[in-house]
Each structure stands twice: as structure tokens, then as C-alpha cells.
Nucleic acid binder design. Structure first.
Length: 336
DNA sequence: AAAGTCTTCAACCGCCGGCGA
DNA sequence: CTCGCCGGCGGTTGAAGACTT
């Protein structure tokens, strides 16, 4: 409303939504004469629109080769992969997705994918885990107040957490967990370094160690780690887990996960599902996990709505696919 | 039922680069 | 070299519909 009009500076050219009649005029004209010279086209077609508006309407809506409807899971994966390489180059991304327009992809990114990555603790710009979303104080109070009401939680130190505090002779944290966390940290450090040195990839043993460590942690233990990690800089790389654990599994009890391969496997399956090409078939984790509804099995639009926009599909963690993707990304980072 | 809030996405805007004069 | 035109791009908006209170 408070915006300066672009086209009606001269003879009141129409703006806003297109009517079916206008669409028909444009389609008829282009079918007869082809498109090009958008400046003179509206006059010739008998439209009270500026050329830009006609071009936009044609390329984004009326073009016969436009694919309608929901994005498939494969399309979504492609968008995320290409975006991680090219950034907001919507037209370049659209060129790799037949029948999809840059505008449509941009909208889909902003309304669906971006939010989902954020919820997973992944920065949608860098595609790396975020370190800036952490509300440490709430974690500190929720996880430490219960077990240490005599001590102000801000003065909690490492030895108390490891050895207990005199009232609670049980350590607040299992030292094994910290050891695991430390080893995980070292792995993630290697991963970061690899981005600077071409050709180096994480070996399979390290990946296995990484996964095993995570798989051994229960939800509660995992959450208990966060305040410790916050206090000690060397654990900073693990902090995105907090967002993932809290946002993805906020209402579940620990028991729901104790029999599964744990929270972190779920995390990695989510992470991998959006970053890798689906080379493996979908593998449900357990009954408490979100069920992936394949779009082709949905009978109605409503059912399809629940796919992609709100549900995160379950895929087993595809290590090789993930590494291949990282290699590709590293390659592009070097080249561009 | 109605008012308020949130989400979606078609369409707009300003800017930029290529090109011909 | 500069100027103006044009097509194309990416960011942003706001009406309409969906959802919530």
C-alpha cells in the first residue's frame, strides 16, 4: 500500500492478481505469436499490464511445462543440497528442478525448509549446526536444580559434577559420558579441519566411534551434558545437540528412547535425510519415531500436506552418502 | 460465532548486467 | 565511453486463507 507503483506511473496499468480473462488473453497471444519483447506484448495482447507483470505471470504460472503440486522428497533434498552449494541462487537451483520456478523454490525454502533446518539446529545459511541458539540458563536450572538445590547452579564446577557434592554421592555426570563427549569433540574437530585440507576425509572408524558414543547416551544424560559443555570451551562443537534434543523430542519420556538406538541416531537420521541422496531404502527406527509417509501412497491432498511440511522422514544414517556430500561441498567451496 | 493471529505464496519492487546505439 | 532499454534475479510484501482463542 505504501509502496510506489511501478507500472501505473503512466496510463493506469493494472496491478495485483490476474483474472482468468487476463490469463486467457496472455496464453492465447503467446500461443499464437510466441513470447519475447515483453514491453510491447501486453499492448498487442490487449492487456492493461506492464511487460514485467506479463513475463512474471507467464514464467511463474501460465507456462505449460510448470509442474504443479507438492514438492517430492527427492526435490526437497535436491533443493537443500544445491542451496548448500550455491546459496540463494534460486534460478540456478530451479534450472536443476524441471518444471519448478525460482519463485516457487524460493517460497518453499522460506516457508518450509528454512524453518525445519532451524528446528533441527542447522543454520539455513551455512548448513552447519548452529551455536547461537542456546538458552543455557534454562538448561542449567532445569537439569541442575533438581539434583543440587543447596548450591547455586552458576557455581557448579567440574569436580562436583563428576564426583558428587556430599549430599548426593552419585556423580551428577557419568565420567564415561564426558569421555565419550571428549572423543566426539575430537572427531568433530577433525571434520572441521578437513574442510581446510582437501582430500582428507573422516575414516570409517572415527565415524563409528562418533555414532557409538552418541548411541550410548540416553536423553536425560545427554541433556545433563549441556551445562558442562557450556562451561568448557572444548565441548562447544557439540552444543547443537541441545537444540535438536529439546525441539525434536520435547514431549517424550526417556523410556521411549531407551530401547531404540537413541536420540542421536534419530538426530543423524534426520540430518542425513535432508543432506544425502537417498541411496538406501527407508528404515523405520522404532514405533515412537515419526513415520514417513511416502507421497505416492497418499490418496488426498490433505494427507500429502502432512508430508514434508510437518513430518520429518526416518532414514537410517547414511554415512557414505553424507561424506560424499561433504566432499562435493568442500570441492565447491574451494572452486567458488 | 467472531475476533485475533499466523502462514502461505503470487506478485511486486529495486537493482544489476548485457547489449546496442 | 556512456546512455538507455530490457530481461532477469532475489528480497519483500500483503491479501487471503487457515488456524487459534
Amino acid at each position: 500500500m505504501g509502496r510506489s507503483p511501478c507500472c501505473e506511473k503512466k496510463n493506469g496499468l493494472k496491478k495485483g492478481p490476474w483474472t482468468p480473462e487476463e490469463d486467457q488473453k496472455l496464453v492465447d497471444y503467446i500461443n499464437k505469436h510466441g513470447y519475447g519483447n515483453w514491453r510491447t506484448l501486453p499492448k498487442n495482447a490487449g492487456l492493461q499490464r506492464c511487460g514485467k507483470s506479463c513475463r512474471l505471470r507467464w514464467t511463474n504460472y501460465l507456462r505449460p511445462d510448470i509442474k504443479r503440486g507438492r514438492f517430492s522428497f527427492e526435490e526437497e533434498e535436491t533443493i537443500i543440497q544445491l542451496h548448500s552449494i550455491m546459496g540463494n541462487k534460486w534460478s540456478a537451483i530451479a534450472a536443476r528442478l524441471p518444471g519448478r520456478t525460482d519463485n516457487e523454490i524460493k517460497n518453499y525454502w522460506n516457508t518450509h525448509i528454512r524453518k525445519r533446518l532451524l528446528k533441527m539446529g542447522i543454520d539455513p545459511v551455512t548448513h552447519s549446526p548452529r551455536l547461537d541458539l542456546l538458552d543455557i540458563s534454562s538448561i542449567l536450572s532445569s537439569s541442575l536444580n533438581n539434583s543440587s538445590h543447596h548450591h547455586h547452579h552458576q557455581h557448579m564446577n567440574m569436580s562436583r559434577l563428576l564426583m558428587g557434592d556430599g549430599h548426593h554421592h552419585q556423580p551428577l555426570l557419568n565420567p564415561e559420558i564426558l569421555k565419550l563427549a571428549a572423543s566426539l569433540f575430537s572427531t568433530s574437530q577433525h571434520q572441521n579441519q578437513n574442510q581446510d585440507h582437501s582430500g582428507n576425509t573422516i575414516n570409517q572408524t572415527e565415524i563409528n566411534q562418533y555414532q557409538t558414543g552418541y548411541n550410548m547416551l540416553g536423553n536425560q544424560e545427554l541433556q545433563a551434558c549441556f551445562p558442562i559443555m557450556d562451561q568448557y570451551a572444548e565441548f562447544q562443537d557439540l552444543m547443537p545437540m541441545k537444540t535438536v534434543v529439546q525441539d525434536s523430542f520435547p514431549s517424550k519420556h526417556d523410556d521411549d528412547y531407551s530401547n531404540s538406538n537413541s536420540v542421536l541416531e534419530a538426530f543423524y537420521s534426520d540430518f542425513a535425510s535432508v543432506l544425502t541422496t537417498p541411496s538406501s531404502s527407508p528404515t523405520p527406527l522404532n514405533s515412537s519415531s515419526t513415520t514417513y509417509i511416502n507421497s505416492s501412497t497418499c490418496s488426498t491432498e490433505d494427507e500429502k500436506e502432512s508430508y514434508c511440511s510437518t513430518e520429518i522422514p526416518d532414514y537410517s544414517f547414511d554415512v557414505n552418502g553424507f561424506l560424499q556430500f561433504q566432499d562435493t561441498k568442500n570441492h565447491w567451496d574451494r572452486v567458488m
